[in-house]
């Protein structure tokens, strides 16, 4: 879905942090990646907001969706396999913030 009025805030290669917010209802940001630092690998396009769609809303305006790559060792401190192993996850823009100052690791 195209929505030229809403330009993506983040660019490919940018370091971002996934917000460690609580969701009051349906959302598509898994709990285990909240608070993690990652890197934008692609801007996928604009998609309707699932947090509004789930409750009968239009989901509009469509929101930028990104692929964010996160090292598995940045999500799980106990991850003992290859350090380059990673997770690729789709995250909506309103769940992302700039320039992480810390990585909220958990076991």
């Amino acid at each position: 879905m195209q929505n030229p009025g809403c330009q993506p805030k983040f660019h490919v290669g940018q370091q971002v942090m996934i917000k460690d917010d609580a969701a009051l209802g349906h959302c598509r940001t898994p709990q285990y990646v909240r608070g993690a630092a990652g890197r934008i690998t692609s801007s996928i396009g604009h998609f309707r907001n699932p947090e509004d769609l789930a409750y009968g809303g239009s989901g509009l305006p469509a929101s930028p969706l990104y692929w964010v790559e996160i090292k598995l060792s940045d999500i799980w401190t106990s991850y003992s396999e290859d350090a380059t192993d990673s997770l690729l996850v789709e995250v909506f823009e309103h769940w992302l913030t700039h320039s992480p100052t810390h990585s909220d690791k958990r076991n």
Partner: peptide
């Protein structure tokens, strides 16, 4: 190894 989580 890249795990791809089909979240959205």
């Amino acid at each position: 190894l890249q795990v791809v989580d089909s979240t959205a």
